[in-house]
């Protein structure tokens, strides 16, 4: 099978699985096995999505802003901490277990505390996004720094390179693929994190809107929000992939394997 047909197959397979899932959903809703008020049909959800699109869009803008701030701050923090842990082994030994512990705390448990401490504004939402997005990036970077080729490090040492030069020319580029893998995961967490934080209080955002429509038992609108969150998360992940490809153009040639003897 050539590369082109393999690529088409790789795209068609998940699209087919998604279509199948929607068909099953449709079948369940149409057959009445699950009452329509509990599981609205895909057509009802699509209708609610179109009707409420302007409202959804304005709430999505708020959630996205929180997610973007949180992801940005989380990324910067993760970068700084991973660099410090790579530089000082003692800090890594002391800090890594703490970092892991922070990830065992459920998001829904810490969110109310954040609201109590910081109020109903954007701050607790952004903080929650920082907490959820920070870990995959920090761990990815730390792992990437460790995977730098020791022979390449030895080569630079033989050139009398400073620690900073070795970091810049070898370690950081080696960590970039791991950084982007972490960022991709974090991007998907960011919107979800913001929505969860909004559930617990606030004035705007997809989470706030979701709470309102839940109270009104408007299940079709709830599904419309869920679908929008999925779409926004997927778009964010795609954006990270685009940035990744632009930041690492050499990967294209490695994948193509254009060199020959």
């Amino acid at each position: 099978m050539n590369r082109r047909s393999e690529s088409i197959r790789n795209k068609l397979l998940p699209a087919g699985a998604l279509c199948l899932l929607v068909l099953v959903w449709w079948g369940l809703a149409a057959s009445g096995v699950i009452p329509n008020y509990m599981l609205p049909s895909p057509a009802d959800v699509f209708g609610a999505f179109i009707r409420d699109f302007p409202v959804l869009l304005s709430h999505a803008g708020v959630s996205l802003t929180e997610a973007a701030y949180g992801l940005g701050i989380g990324t910067l923090l993760a970068f700084a901490l991973a660099c410090a842990m790579d530089r000082f082994a003692l800090l890594e030994k002391a800090g890594l277990p703490l970092l892991v512990i922070t990830q065992t705390i459920p998001t829904v448990a810490i969110a109310p505390l954040l609201v109590l401490w910081m109020g109903f504004g954007m701050e607790p939402k952004i903080t929650l996004v920082v907490i959820t997005t920070f870990f995959p990036i920090a761990i990815g970077l730390l792992d990437g720094f460790k995977r730098a080729d020791p022979d390449a490090v030895a080569l630079l040492k033989s050139m009398n390179a400073t620690r900073g030069q070795i970091f810049r020319h070898v370690k950081l580029p080696a960590a970039l693929p791991h950084f982007f893998s972490g960022l991709r995961v974090s991007a998907s967490y960011a919107v979800v994190g913001a929505v969860i934080a909004e559930w617990l209080g606030g004035f705007e955002g997809l989470g706030v809107y979701m709470t309102r429509v839940r109270k009104a038992y408007a299940f079709d609108k709830m599904f419309a929000v869920i679908i929008l969150v999925v779409i926004v998360s997927l778009l964010l992940m795609k954006l990270v992939s685009i940035i990744r490809n632009a930041a690492m153009p050499w990967l294209r040639y490695r994948q193509e394997g254009t060199g020959s003897n």
């Binding site: 080729d149 033989s158 050499w250």
Partner: peptide, 27 residues
Amino acid sequence: RPGQVSYMLQKDLLLEHKRVMDNVTLP
């Protein structure tokens, strides 16, 4: 004292993220 005599290891150790010119001028 490193940096006095240049050294090429078994692997070519070209840095994949750098273009050829940037690789050869690295030292």
